[in-house]
């Protein structure tokens, strides 16, 4: 487990007019998935590479559990941080097994010692070890390679995981499946994850926290709901599609529409569900209410009335923040 703090981090590449990363500060808490969202060239990869010291900041510092990374040996640091590289980056001359056990093997573990671990990791990312262990990267599909990349990053059980567009260049279905698997894995292992993406949907689906970057600057940082409810600028507002009611339904948790429980509640719904499934169920039931439960305890209920009320208030807030209404409400830009 680890907390990552970025403190006034700036990176200027030689001969560049503007900094690639400009005075960025934020904190990623232990066990959270933080999504770095931004247009191409906004400094996401640069920010990521500073965490494991593939490059060093021009000024400012990055602390992991309070310790500045500059005080740590870069090699040891990198071995303790999993990195899933943009464009996979598997080693084509090594079998899948050897790819996955790269880090343990440089730490001196033999193939026999790591065998079980490799199996476990391949299972974790949904690849049958017996079938894939001895294969080579080029004998795998793009999506399977991405999975191996993830398994490799997890091999040394790092507390921190850096993922640079790990699911880029995948079709929507495979991507969604891998996203689900990542959430699954995360439920079990609880890493602190920094995840770079272009894709707003992905950011919302996976992120506990979203950091929006533009031209090297941090534009806004917060939970998906915060970004939806209070976008800091028109850029963020358009980016996250804050005006899109359907998106609000999709990402607001049912707890956003909580009202005191009554006898009307016929069914139950988990507290971490989103509004959309609750709404669909309520429409199916024609009326009534759903009891919102967490760990067997009833927190309250949601009904059609409470859902509408909550969304209206969210939408009112969002509109008030921008003071403009003419924008097409349902065109969330997916930036590329």
């Amino acid at each position: 487990m680890a907390t990552i703090e970025f403190v006034d981090v700036t990176k200027e590449y030689p001969n560049a007019k503007t900094p690639a990363v400009d005075n960025v500060s934020f904190t990623v808490h232990e066990g959270a998935i933080c999504m770095l969202l931004g247009t191409s060239g906004s400094g996401k990869t640069t920010l990521l590479r500073m965490v494991n010291r593939l490059i060093d900041p021009t000024s400012g510092e990055i602390r992991i559990d309070g310790v500045p990374t500059t005080q740590q040996d870069p090699i040891a640091l990198r071995r303790s941080i999993g990195y899933v590289i943009q464009q996979v980056g598997l080693f084509p001359h090594l079998s899948i097994e050897d790819n996955v056990r790269v880090v343990p093997s440089i730490l001196g573990k033999s193939a026999a010692e790591t065998r079980d671990r490799v199996d476990e990791l391949l299972h974790l990312v949904g690849l049958e070890p017996a079938e894939y262990r001895k294969r080579y990267p080029r004998q795998l599909s793009g999506g399977q390679q991405q999975r191996v990349g993830l398994a490799r990053a997890l091999a040394a059980d790092p507390a921190v995981l850096l993922m640079d567009e790990p699911f880029g260049a995948l079709d929507a279905i495979t991507r969604a499946r891998l996203q689900d698997e990542l959430l699954n894995v995360q439920r079990g292992v609880r890493k602190t994850i920094l995840f770079v993406t272009h894709d707003v949907e992905e950011a919302f689906k996976l992120g506990d926290q979203i950091v929006v970057m533009s031209e090297g600057k941090l534009v806004q940082e917060g939970s998906p709901i915060e970004l939806l409810a209070q976008p800091a600028s028109d850029f963020v507002r358009q980016l996250v599609g804050a005006d899109n009611i359907l998106r609000q339904f999709e990402y607001q948790p049912v707890t956003a529409a909580l009202e005191p429980a009554t006898d009307a509640a016929q069914e139950r719904i988990a507290a971490d569900e989103r509004l959309l499934p609750a709404l669909l169920r309520l429409i199916q039931m024609r009326n009534g209410a759903l009891a919102v439960v967490r760990d067997g305890e009833t927190l309250g209920q949601v009904s059609l009335a409470s859902v509408f009320a909550s969304v209206q208030s969210i939408h009112r807030n969002a509109s008030a923040a921008s003071g403009e209404h003419n924008r097409s409400a349902d065109s969330a830009p997916v930036i590329r």
Binding site: R78, S80, I85, V103, R152
Partner: peptide, 16 residues
């Protein structure tokens, strides 16, 4: 070059 880059990011030295 990405291969060496990947090797480095996994904690290998340049020579390794």
């Amino acid at each position: 070059l990405g291969q060496l880059e990947a090797a480095k990011s996994l904690g290998m030295t340049y020579w390794l």
